[in-house]
């Protein structure tokens, strides 16, 4: 058991008050530094590693492509195209996540090659940006003819 000895004195000595003021000044300076980081970036756009902005998950997922593929059948209908099956790739491999437009263009080219001359492949794709989704490819035209 812990023994605690206290005086119960309510009047604080002068030194204690001075220490309290110093501590309060230090508290305000540290708190101001804590606030300065996010204010600098989020209010004034100042990006510096010296200050923390606390912008959580603001960069994760940017650039990711949401894509769907379709191929025209001999009867003229469009059916969904499984890029993994067409390219003989694993569902958990590199083809799973398309990270930018160059990668998308490369996959389209490989799909067109695999489908053969005269293939009509339509691609709808949008890319994740800081402002939301941005359409980067529409299915209005044959992607193999571009």
């Amino acid at each position: 058991m812990v023994n605690v000895v206290t005086t119960g004195v309510s009047v604080r000595p002068a030194g204690w008050i001075a220490a309290g003021r110093l501590r309060l000044a230090a508290f305000l300076v540290i708190a101001a530094f804590m606030i300065a980081g996010p204010v600098a970036e989020q209010a004034f756009g100042l990006r510096t590693p010296l200050l923390r902005s606390w912008t959580m998950f603001s960069g994760i997922g940017l650039g990711v492509i949401d894509a769907s593929f379709a191929i025209r059948q001999p009867d003229g209908s469009l059916v969904p195209l499984d890029r993994f099956a067409m390219l003989g790739a694993s569902h958990d491999g590199k083809l799973k996540r398309i990270e930018d437009r160059d990668e998308l263009a490369s996959i389209i080219m490989r799909l067109c090659e695999a489908a053969g001359q005269g293939a009509d492949i339509r691609v709808s794709a949008r890319q994740g940006t800081r402002d939301g989704w941005r359409i980067v490819h529409t299915d209005t035209a044959n992607a193999c003819a571009e």
């Binding site: 997922g61 949401d66 769907s68 994740g128």
Partner: peptide, 12 residues
Amino acid sequence: EHIFLWYYAGSD
């Protein structure tokens, strides 16, 4: 959605 696609769903 971006985060979910990035870590879980991929580009589908």
